[in-house]
């Protein structure tokens, strides 16, 4: 056991679990309350196109997908609020296109060495110090943002029109939130993959909302929950020899429904 712990990838994996919990526990709260879950899933899929574009142009895939996704998230978010473009259709079309573009670019480039499965389903053992540092930077930015704007974000999520007529700069806050959402999702893709990341975006706040009606506690429960499923899923995947990302998401789903049953039975709701 000591040998495993001393291995750098394992240290990275644990550090990543802590950072991911703080990231997704917080992000999930705003995404769920602003009803942007589908947008989150869309951004994750867009990442695939970004990675492929990076490979194609010879730019680092991480930064390529970061730039691509931030741009996509902000643009889609704007289209939705300005022109009333339906979230579902707009995002559905865009992320399918982005994945298709990615597939074409990879085929054209003949990038066979590209770890496709790693991007789609995650590979926590492939997490490098670079990934951890990037996630830590996202963490600092997200918490700085929320620390300064928590109540205004809450107002905007609760009632965007009234927030803006009351003096909240909703346009700017929305753009920043969308950009941060894209950045956080990109850092999480390494761990659970494009296909499964939407679970991390939706589940923590949904879990928190089952247990509390106080926004601070909902966030705290979301963080705890994410930490529990990430470390639990990681350990389980070692013991059962199953894919890590899939194990984390399955454990998370099971825990969510368990909590729901618990609340129904013991709290009479």
């Amino acid at each position: 056991m000591r040998e495993i712990i001393s291995m750098p990838f394992f240290v990275n994996a644990i550090a990543m679990c802590v950072i991911m919990s703080l990231l997704f526990g917080m992000l999930s709260f705003f995404v769920v309350l602003r009803r942007m879950s589908f947008l989150g899933a869309g951004v994750a899929h867009t990442a695939f196109g970004g990675v492929a574009l990076g490979l194609f142009l010879g730019i680092d895939p991480f930064f390529a997908s970061l730039a691509f996704c931030v741009l996509a998230a902000v643009t889609l978010g704007r289209l939705v609020s300005r022109d009333g473009l339906s979230y579902d259709a707009g995002i559905g079309i865009f992320f399918a296109f982005s994945m298709a573009l990615g597939a074409i670019l990879i085929a054209v480039r003949k990038a066979y060495s590209f770890d496709l499965m790693g991007y789609l389903f995650g590979n926590i053992l492939g997490v490098t110090t670079f990934d951890t540092v990037m996630a830590a930077i996202a963490l600092v930015l997200l918490y700085l943002f929320v620390g300064l704007y928590l109540h205004r974000l809450l107002f905007m999520s609760f009632d965007e029109d009234v927030a803006s007529t009351s003096g909240v700069r909703t346009g700017a806050l929305d753009t920043l939130l969308l950009a941060l959402m894209a950045a956080v999702i990109i850092t999480g893709i390494k761990v659970v993959g494009i296909i499964l990341i939407s679970a991390l975006v939706v589940l923590p706040a949904s879990f928190g909302l089952l247990l509390s009606k106080n926004f601070r506690l909902v966030i705290a429960w979301g963080i705890l929950y994410t930490f529990a499923i990430m470390t639990g899923g990681l350990a389980l995947s070692f013991v059962l020899d199953t894919p890590t990302g899939a194990t984390i998401v399955s454990l998370g789903t099971a825990l969510y429904f368990l909590a729901m049953a618990f609340v129904r039975i013991f709290m009479n709701k």
């Binding site: 928590l150 109540h151 205004r152 009632d159 009351s166």
Partner: peptide, 11 residues
């Protein structure tokens, strides 16, 4: 919320 809306920097 409406009091926080007009916050300059620190809420």
């Amino acid at each position: 919320m409406s009091r926080f809306a007009r916050t300059a920097v620190i809420e």
